[in-house]
Write a protein that binds this DNA or RNA. Structure first.
Lengths: 146, 146
DNA sequence: CCGGATCCAATCGGATACTG
DNA sequence: CAGTATCCGATTGGATCCGG
């Protein structure tokens, strides 16, 4: 809260101090079990088998109908896509518009919140993809040791 | 690939074009089911019930013994912590050092790869924490509509 | 102190059949 | 087309007992 704070942090030491505080702060949030909707809840929800894939597909195509999205993902069952989309809708990541037509048409797209989530997920996915060689070789070493 | 590309991108249009390419690129990686170790595998592994918590705890404290880590996390069972740490070790995120003493001492700490993962996880957790109010209110609206 | 082994409950996710 | 309902196998995670 002091006047010349944080305006132009360029050295790594200051950043790592800041990171450490952030880390403990977030750790407490993540450890929290008392609240209704802790961080772990949301992270767990987005990390199930189809959520991330749905979000990325919607982010790529903008707006998709149910069966188009289903084909886009490829191997998801009807039931699981429905469940996944309901969960994402419940948390406000995806919007669902129903058109009163025959045959019925339902369009899904990311909300602003959902786009933010996608950006986060994208960064994680990119990092994992970049580190895949290391991870794969680590797994091979592990089985050799066992 | 042209000479004056990407040196000082300040407008949003150029970034969004880049993002779109990244998005489709990563979407393909995440959709991939053919490879041994796809992105989804790793993301799924780090998103189980205790992995993220373990990583954050180790990142906060540097080095931890088994039971210290167990107490730090709080409500994890002995079995699940063992399983979680083995998985993280297999992927190269956590190192495990055994000291030949009685009573035995085993110390866990993040590898460089694990620290990188923690940074990613931290960003995601921070984002979720920042958006929690929106998410909570969205959930409340959802039950009202149902 | 650090786990391995076993048993069991809860949740997740796929297949199928049916509806507005 | 876009679901709902039901059944069932697979996976996850907790409790407990045991061993080095």
């Amino acid at each position: 809260m002091s006047k010349s704070e944080n305006t132009e942090v360029t050295n790594n030491e200051a950043e790592s101090v800041k990171d450490e505080k952030k880390l403990k702060f977030i750790l407490d949030k993540v450890k929290d079990h008392s609240e209704i909707c802790p961080v772990r809840d949301v992270i767990h929800r987005i990390s199930d088998k189809w959520s991330l894939l749905s979000i990325l597909a919607l982010g790529t195509h903008g707006t998709l109908r149910f069966n188009t999205l289903k084909r886009e993902i490829g191997d998801v069952s009807q039931r699981m896509l429905t469940v996944t989309l309901r969960n994402l809708e419940e948390d406000g990541f995806v919007s669902r518009k129903i058109y009163a037509e025959v045959p019925p048409r339902v369009e899904y797209q990311l909300t602003d919140l959902g786009e933010g989530l996608m950006q986060q997920a994208l960064q994680l996915a990119e990092w994992v993809n970049a580190k895949l060689p290391q991870i794969v070789s680590s797994r091979k070493e592990f089985v050799k040791k066992a």
